[in-house]
């Protein structure tokens, strides 16, 4: 029996790696990967808590299903926008895209 804290440590670690990826990476796709890591950390948390409460509440697993599908939709929109950006700027480096008032 793995205690719930271990899952929380794991999720916290993955979430932190995701945040670090978002903040340190300059390539838009890498930033998106960081965000996906953060979402997966949330999924681990939700399932760990559902297990901790002895599966008496199934809202956590249901939430996970919704997060997975919405993350897929978000990634699809993101990739479409990145392609459009690449066609316009010939680059998807978030630092290089500075057209608006600076």
């Amino acid at each position: 029996m793995i205690p719930v804290q271990d899952f929380l440590y794991l999720a916290g670690l993955i979430f932190s790696i995701g945040v670090f990826g978002v903040l340190s990476r300059r390539n838009a796709i890498s930033v998106l990967m960081g965000i996906e890591l953060m979402l997966n950390a949330v999924n681990i948390n939700l399932l760990a808590f559902a297990k901790f409460w002895g599966w008496t509440t199934l809202n956590g697993p249901v939430f996970v299903v919704f997060i997975i599908t919405i993350a897929a939709g978000e990634a699809a929109v993101a990739l479409a926008i990145f392609i459009s950006i690449y066609r316009k700027f010939k680059d998807i480096n978030v630092d290089e895209i500075k057209y608006l008032n600076h």
């Binding site: 249901v62 299903v65 997975i68 599908t69 897929a72 939709g73 990634a75 699809a76 990739l79 479409a80 392609i83």
Partner: peptide, 23 residues
């Protein structure tokens, strides 16, 4: 080829939506 990208996009969307079919 960039044409692959639209297929991939559609595939990801429709593929993931099936997760609702299991429960």
């Amino acid at each position: 080829n960039v044409s692959f990208y639209l297929y991939a996009l559609l595939f990801v969307l429709f593929d993931v939506e099936t997760v609702f079919l299991y429960p």
